[in-house]
Each structure stands twice: as C-alpha cells, then as structure tokens.
Design a protein around this nucleic acid. Structure first.
Length: 191
DNA sequence: GCCAGGATGTTA
DNA sequence: AACATCCTGGCG
C-alpha cells in the first residue's frame, strides 16, 4: 500500500541517503506505477561519473533548478535516463532510477515493451523510461506535486548495496542500492 | 548461460 | 571520442 506523498524536502539531503531511502517507494507517472527496487547516487562535486564532472550544462542545471526536479538525458543516443535533482547545499547531486517492479498500468507498459515478461518491464534505467513513456520532453519538470505523477512512501524493503554499474570512472563508490531478492533488478547484486 | 557487436544522438 | 544501455545472434 502506498502511504504519504514524498515532497521536494525529501531531496534536500545528500544524494546517497536519498537513493537508499527511495528503495521500496512507489513511483507514479501518468497511470503507471512501479515500486522502486534499484537506484544509484551521483555527486555533483568530485564524482567523475557524474555529468557535472565534465558537462558545464549539467552544472548549470544544478545551479538553476530546485531539488526534486527531473534531470533526463539521452544515453548512447538510444535510451532516456531518469534522475531526480538533489540539493542539500553541501552535497548536491542526482538519484538515477534504475529499476522498478511494475505495480499498475501493466497493459500500457506491455504495449511499449512488447514481448517482455512483466517482471522485466522496468528492470533497467532505459527500460523503465520506455515502459512508462518518460522522455526528453519531461526534462527539468517538477513532477512531485502533479496529481498523476509523484513518489510515495510504502513498506520498507531489505536493502543491499554495491558499486555503481555501467560506468568507467568512479567504480569504487558503493552508491548502488537494491531491494534484496527482487526479480526486477537490472543486474543481480554482487555477493 | 555467456560474450561480442551494433544502433544511435548529444556533449564537449 | 566518449557515453549512468539494450537487444540480438552466435555459440555451446
């Protein structure tokens, strides 16, 4: 069951705590709902894997938007990736949404990802944006207060931690968070 | 099951 | 040139 709505204040903390605390929460977007089972944290300072490290435009985004707005970009020319801006004033950054367990709106998700088994519909950062129809048109959007979009607290889940995935620099940091035992992770947690 | 390779656009 | 990915096809 979803509980109270998460507001922008949730993202006025450091990105690592935000990423961890989002595991188990529900993410709703235009009729589709997923339980968050995998996230990663990125830091705006001193993190070579974060866009702010090599993109002036990303640094301008952090400076020019409030905590809780969406940061969405096209990865490998193919996949939209969804992040939430985190601003604590001390340690700013992003949370990347990497995987969800589908909860509602499965019919629409199946239409957008034909042939995919249900548990895999949102099992990856590019997969979840495709399944939920999130794209560059939503970049910079405020989504936490829209009736048909947002985040909700729900039952807490057991959380596992590991190194971030798919990056070439900053691999040491254990800033990937997963719901232990979920079938919908983008990849299993290392043991 | 694993691995290699290609698609594709934006940034710098 | 690099890239916070995904899918397919080849192999066993």
């Amino acid at each position: 069951m979803k509980q109270e709505r998460i507001g922008p204040v949730f993202f006025q903390r450091n990105p690592v705590d935000c990423a961890r605390d989002l595991i188990g929460c529900w993410f709703e977007w235009d009729g589709c709902v997923g339980r968050i089972v995998e996230t990663e944290a990125y830091a705006a300072e001193d993190d070579p894997a974060c866009h702010t490290f090599f993109r002036p435009s990303a640094r301008r985004f952090v400076a020019g938007h409030p905590a809780g707005h969406a940061y969405i970009y096209l990865n490998y020319g193919v996949h939209w990736l969804f992040n939430v801006l985190v601003k604590d004033g001390d340690m700013d950054g992003f949370v990347l949404f990497r995987a969800l367990e589908p909860v509602a709106g499965l019919e629409a998700m199946r239409t957008r990802r034909p042939g995919c088994p249900d548990h895999g519909l949102c099992a990856g950062p590019g997969k979840l944006t495709r399944a939920m129809d999130i794209h560059g048109g939503h970049h910079a959007a405020e989504f936490l207060s829209r009736p048909e979009r947002g985040l909700w607290r729900a039952e807490p889940l057991e959380i596992g931690t590991g190194p971030r995935i798919g990056i070439s620099k900053g691999k040491e940091l254990p800033w990937r968070f997963c719901a232990v035992g979920s079938r919908s992770l983008s990849r299993p947690l290392p043991r």
